[in-house]
Design a protein around this nucleic acid. Sequence first.
DNA 1: GCGCTACTGCGTATGCCGTATACGTTACAG
DNA 2: CTGTAACGTATACGGCATACGCAGTAGCGC
Lengths: 256, 256
Amino acid sequence: MAKQRTAQNGLPAGVAAAWGLRERPGRGPARGLDVARIVRAAIAVADAEGLGAVSMSRVATEVGVSTMALYRYVEGKNDLLILMEDEAAGTPPPGPGPGAGWRAGLEHWARAHRDVLTRHLWMVRIPISTPPLSPHSVEWMELALGCLRGTGLDAEEKLGVLITLNGYVRSSVSLTADIAEAARGEGGADWEELEPRYWRLLTQLTAAGDFPAIKEMFASGEVDTAFEEEGEGSADFEFGLALVLDGTQALIERRA
Amino acid sequence: MAKQRTAQNGLPAGVAAAWGLRERPGRGPARGLDVARIVRAAIAVADAEGLGAVSMSRVATEVGVSTMALYRYVEGKNDLLILMEDEAAGTPPPGPGPGAGWRAGLEHWARAHRDVLTRHLWMVRIPISTPPLSPHSVEWMELALGCLRGTGLDAEEKLGVLITLNGYVRSSVSLTADIAEAARGEGGADWEELEPRYWRLLTQLTAAGDFPAIKEMFASGEVDTAFEEEGEGSADFEFGLALVLDGTQALIERRA
DNA sequence: GCGCTACTGCGTATGCCGTATACGTTACAG
DNA sequence: CTGTAACGTATACGGCATACGCAGTAGCGC
C-alpha cells in the first residue's frame, strides 16, 4: 500500500501505466505477456460474470499463466481495476460539434457515457479513486467541458455541472444494474416481471402504517411503469437527464 | 443463496427481519443476544474503520461471541448489511411541513439524507439491492413523496424526481468519500492538500495532447476550488442540489 | 417429574481470496 | 564468457464467508 505511487510523478501506478510511462524492459528473458492482454481478459471476465468473478487467479487462468505471473505486469489488483476502467471507457465518440449547442452536446455525452457503463456494468462498482487522471477519462472530461464553452459559466460552475451530470449517469446505471442483479439472484426473473410483486409488497407493508403520500400514489393507479429497465428506450434515463439539463439551462440563463 | 426469501411474503430475509416479522423464539435455551446489538456493533465498526473492516468474525469479537454464533441471528453477511443500512438510515427528521412548498421540503430532505450518509460513509458502498422496502427507507420515501403533493406531477414523474434526487445525493457523498479515502491512503493528507497536486498533474499530462477546453479552463486561472470537501459548508453539494431542483422546477412549471 | 426435542452457542473445516517470498531459469550487458 | 536483472512459478500465509456437527439447555407433552 505504501508503494502506490510511481517514482516519476507521484501518479498512482496504474494511471502512470495507462499513460504509457513505464520502466525499461531491461535485461531478463523476453516477456511472454503484455499488460493489454491481461486487462482485456479481465474485462471479458467482468463483462460476462461480473466484477466478483474477477480474481487474480481467474484472470491468470484466462490468460494462460500462473496467478503470480500477473504481478510482473500489474502492481496488484487495484492497479488492474484502474487499467480495466480506462481501457473499457475508451475514446468517447466525437459528439455533434459546437454548432449544435451545449445541450445537444451534453445529451450526446451522457448517452454515450451511459452506453459504455451499460456495456460494462461492473464499472459502476469500482469506487472512484481520484478525479479524472487516466488518459481516457481525461478525454471524456475534455469532451464534456468543450460542450460548455461559450455558456458564460466560470470554471467552477462548469466542473460542478460535469460532476453532477457524471454522477447522474453513474447512479442511473448503477440503479438498474443493482436491480437487475438482485432480480437475477431471485430466481432468474427480470425486473419487468418482478415489479408488480414489488408494488404489491410495498402496498402490504405500508397498509398498516401512516404513509399518506405513498397511499395516494397507489390510489392514483398508474405506478406499474416506474423503475423501468428497458434495453434501449430508457425513458427513465431520459427523464432524469432532462431534469439535470433543465437545471443547467436555468443556471446558464441566470448567468446570461 | 437460494433461501434468500422468507416463506411468508417473498421478502428478502433481512427486510422481513427489519419489519419485525420473525419466526417464533421457540423452545431452546434463552438467547444470549439480539439482532439489534449485532447490528449496532457492526455499524460502529463500519463508522470507525469503514465497510472493509466489517467481517463476521470482527463483529462477533466486538459483541463478545464466536463468529458462528452470529448466524443464529442473521442469515448471512448480506442480511447484516441490509439491517445495518436500515438501522443507520433511521427515521427521517420531520421536515418543514407542506406550507413551506415542495422545494424547501426537498432541500431539507436532501440535506438530511446527505447528513446521514456523511455520518455513515459506508452506506454508499452497499449496492442497492431492491427499491425501498425496509421500514426506514419507506419512511424516507414517504417524506420525499409528500413534498411533491400538489405539484401537478403524476406518480411516475414524482418517482422520477425522487430517484434522480436520491441518486444525486448518493453520488455526491460517494464522490467525496472516495476522494477522502484515496487521499487518506496516500499518506494521510486530506484532499485540500492534495488538490493542487492534482491540478498540476492534469496540467502536465494534458500539456502534450489536444485538450483545448481543459487548457482553456486552466488559462482562466481559478480552478483550485473545485472538488471541495468542506466539512459543513458543502458548496459543491448545494450547487448540484440547486441544479436538480431547478430542473424539477422547470418540469413543474411546464405541467402547470 | 420426566424425557423428548428444538434450539442454543461454538469448534472445526472447506474453499475461496490477495499477495509476500523464494526459487530455478533465461538472456542481455559488460 | 560471465554476472545479474528480470522472467515465470510454486509455495505459503493470513483473512474471508460459511457449511456442518456437536454438546448442552430449557420448555413442552405426558
